[in-house]
Amino acid sequence: MNKKSYIGLIVVVVVFSLIFIPRIFERLNKDKVVTNIRTVNLSEKPLSYIEINKQKRKVPEFIFLNQDSLYVSNIDFIGKVFLVEFFFTKCPTICPIMNNNLKYLNDYFSNEDDFKIVSITVDPQNDTPHVLKKYSENFVENSNKWNFLTGEQHKIYNLANNGFNLLAQVNPNFAGGFEHQGYFALIDKKGYIRSRDDKFGNPIIYYSGVNNINAPIQGTDMLQEDIKLLLKEN
């Protein structure tokens, strides 16, 4: 190879380096997946109301005992933003995931006096206030912030199935002997059930309490954003 050929080859390499290598790095950075980081892109779009027959749906009335053997009702949460879930302490499947996600939200909003959590057992025969007290210590120190509730089974099931339209029932074919759905209900300061819309413009109604590796954003991450929106409302 003569001297001119070497010079030509060097010129080609330099031009390629200057033009194409930066583009390759740009593409790699663009496609990079960042894991184990909770990101929040707060949307200012107001959350939707859940409506039935053109009537805004409020949280159903309830009154149950908490882990401190104190009566707690829906009236106690007027002026507060709160979450409602159904669970049971012996649940070996989704409940630990749900309550760890609630613990994350409880810790995140630990300085927000207007944010609360309500966990209602679907196994009240076993989950007495004493049992709930011991169980709650795995997740929270202050019962004023997070109430674990128990009561008469038929009232709890009526609240879940008819009040929230969330399935809760005895089912020996399910692990632990009970079947319930792994969703969180988000309630605003005036007692209305609220949610963000899906990509088609319809309310999602409830938020997933379990982690889905295929979901573009987890239910708890959506809640982190949407709780902030409701806390800003009067």
Rank of each mutant, 00 (worst) to 15 (best):
K80N: 13
L83T: 03
Q125E: 15
Y6Q: 09
E141Y: 13
N147I: 07
P203E: 01
N2L: 02
N66Q: 04
T35L: 04
S136K: 09
I10Q: 05
I19V: 06
A160N: 04
N162D: 15
N171W: 09
N111M: 11
V72E: 04
Y49D: 09
N142I: 12
D68C: 07
N144F: 09
F184A: 07
N100Q: 13
D123C: 05
P46R: 00
E44I: 11
L9A: 14
Q169W: 11
C95T: 01
Y104V: 10
D76S: 06
V81N: 00
K58T: 04
S43Q: 02
L166Y: 02
F20K: 09
G191K: 00
K45F: 02
I19P: 05
E85Y: 03
N173F: 10
G163D: 02
G8C: 09
A160T: 08
L83M: 00
A160Y: 05
Y6N: 09
E179T: 12
A215G: 12
P92W: 08
I63C: 14
E51I: 01
S110N: 12
K199T: 14
L102M: 06
F178N: 03
I7C: 09
I204S: 00
Y207T: 05
D31A: 13
K228M: 11
M1Y: 13
G219F: 07
I227Q: 06
I37F: 10
H130A: 15
L42T: 13
R194Y: 11
G182Q: 05
E225Y: 08
K4V: 14
S43L: 05
K32F: 03
K54D: 11
Q125C: 06
Q218V: 12
R27N: 15
D127S: 03
Y71A: 11
P92H: 08
K56F: 01
V210P: 04
I97C: 04
K56W: 00
F62E: 02
I52G: 04
T150Q: 04
E225C: 09
P172C: 11
E85S: 13
N142D: 15
A185G: 10
M1E: 14
Q67G: 01
P216K: 00
K133S: 14
F20C: 09
K30I: 04
N234W: 10
D31H: 15
K190D: 15
E152N: 14
F148G: 04
E137K: 06
P216A: 01
N53A: 06
S110T: 10
F20L: 09
P46M: 02
M1V: 12
V34F: 05
N53V: 03
H154D: 13
I227N: 10
A215L: 10
N144C: 05
K199Q: 14
N142R: 07
L65I: 01
P46Q: 01
L231N: 12
S195K: 05
N212K: 09
L18R: 05
F174C: 11
K56T: 00
V14E: 02
R57Q: 11
A168D: 01
N173D: 15
K58P: 00
P124Y: 09
Y108L: 08
E44V: 12
P216R: 00
L70P: 07
H154C: 03
F184L: 06
D68N: 11
F62C: 00
F148S: 02
K145E: 05
T121A: 02
I156R: 01
L9N: 11
K199Y: 13
N2Y: 07
